[in-house]
Design a protein around this nucleic acid. Structure first.
Lengths: 191, 191, 191, 191
DNA sequence: TTTTAAGCGAGACGGTACGTCATGTCTTGCT
DNA sequence: AGCAAGACATGACGTACCGTCTCGCTTAAAA
């Protein structure tokens, strides 16, 4: 498996590839992005892409990871409900934005028939963000805004499940008031 | 756009195509199914497939529609909680079964970059089943097992959202007790 | 080895491919011809080329075969020496022409590391033309211009060997008088 | 075009490259030898090869030149016919040997689309050996074994032309008696 | 009952992208 | 400065499917 030497890697090409991948995904949609087009747009050889990533999905995952880290952090103003409203709205925006939405949804689609990519998606994108959400809830617990018996894992599922469900099954995004109703209901038992 | 004459359609080929599509999906996973392979397996010309369906997704959708109708009906024993447990477990099985799971998840994946297919999936598979679930909840309302103020649409989202969320984002299926906890929590406010 | 069905072959594409191959060979030299370029020039998919020929050499061989048949026939005026002068000069022209020379020499080069192509070259181009030359000599024998003991095979080698030798080893083509001296010498023993 | 400093050249790498080139040519045939494979086999960087030779053909040419010098010298026992038999047989062996034949024929093939290599081949390999043959014939002339009017250049062509012709055009090598007939015929006019 | 036009199997076709290979250039340390 | 190692842009390879398109053949509706 002779892994290439990461020290000699061209950082310029690396960044050009990530940028090209996101640009193309925004322009033509994830499904119409090809490794060939990424290479052409980035001014890079296909070999260079295949040297460092196994599939186009892995490229998009890394590019998206960079974006996700900088754009969506979890707020902690002390008011749990307000923070959850802010955060879920940000997730809705992320899913709706032409730049990130198509790439993210396309990536999730790809993971349905690419196990390795699925593992990477979960480890690099999903789990860290679930952890951040859980942390915020735990902090609320310490502040007494949430009962000590609250099932934090369940709460996370109940908040994000419906959002992804409606998006991936094409049932239309939540309106603001539906989102607020969702949050209220989920917290109702343990407030 | 001369639509073909459905009366002269060969029912034998029709069924062979649907069966081949499901078989291949079960054997090698939705992503590795191709129109060419379906045609070869069904002993049918590619032209015949393209005459009646626009994409392989549409073929799978029809095949899955037939299966879904026969396998998952919503029980009504009078005990809402028991019925929800039965039904959500059936959905988990449907998603986990090699025969139906790969096809269904692959289909959902495909709809992320095929709007026409997305519309058909929603109209033919998703909405009818949401309606059935909503009907069952409404029946429970009439029987007094659920408050009249209960937000039925929200309940459906809260039940199925987490199931699809965990499946599509590769967070592992729910264990039985987690599923029960989910149902209990969702109903808690309006029982 | 599912051979394709030759009856359904597109004669238009067939001819376009042969023409494109010869054109490109004339324009850029055999070594710079690629299957990809032939396909593009002929307005044909690469798959169509690979369906009917194993390598670009086989394409050129067929194209050259068509040309060779029509252009170089062996004259029989009754005067053996005159006919040999005419014919060897025609071979020199064939080797020197931009249209045929590059293709033919490139083809011979390719056969040095492609055994299958070598076999086809010999059977389809070389041997038939050697046979024609031998026939002409045999006819001269019957007319008494050549002794009955003449070693016809040897004569053919002695005539064409030096021509190919000088061409392939880059020793420059024969001037007319050297060609005549060659013919005279070869026939001297058996006239 | 800063030529590299030959004094600082690593003789070890130099020899390793020549040896690797010949080994690979013998093992897999000239056509399957690549600069990359030579570099890997010789434990040398590709850069080092390109620093000192323009193409793989040039490497093989140099390697072959070393071998040719040591293996095939022209005998002079005083008996011209015997010496020609010895020498032409040696040429047949050289062409048939797995070590030298594939490399030499492959090299000749390459010169059909590489003019610079062609020039080098002629100057470094072909012409010197033609000169040696011509010298031997001239010596025979002085000894009265060959008429003073003999066309030495023509004799060389008539001897070696058929040998290369049969080899390069895949007509099979000469049997011993055919070789002797060839020599007899060529000398007949001027003995 | 015959005609006849549609569906049908087979599969060749023009395309697009795939993932791989070798080229010749280049950069980075080591000797 | 030469060198081993090897990343890089380039460009062709041969393959896989796509969706379109003839071909004859069979086959069921209309005549």
């Amino acid at each position: 498996m002779m892994a290439p030497n990461a020290q000699r890697r061209s950082e310029k090409s690396h960044q050009a590839i990530l940028a090209a991948a996101m640009d193309l995904s925004a322009e033509r949609g994830y499904g119409n992005v090809t490794v060939e087009a990424i290479a052409a747009r980035a001014g890079v050889s296909k070999k260079t892409i295949y040297r460092w990533w196994p599939t186009k999905g892995a490229v998009i995952l890394e590019a998206l990871g960079e974006l996700a880290q900088t754009t969506t952090t979890f707020p902690d103003t002390g008011d749990l409900v307000a923070d959850l409203r802010t955060q879920t709205a940000a997730v809705l925006d992320f899913l709706a934005s032409p730049r990130t939405g198509s790439a993210y949804l396309g990536l999730i689609a790809e993971t349905q028939h690419d196990e390795a990519l699925a593992r990477d998606l979960v480890e690099q994108l999903i789990k860290p963000r679930v952890a951040v959400a859980t942390d915020r809830l735990r902090s609320a617990q310490r502040q007494g805004q949430l009962s000590a018996e609250a099932d934090l894992e369940l709460i996370v599922e109940l908040l994000y499940g419906p959002i992804y469900y409606r998006r991936l099954l094409h049932l239309g995004p939540h309106a603001d008031d539906r989102l607020h109703a969702l949050i209220d209901h989920v917290l109702s038992q343990w407030r």
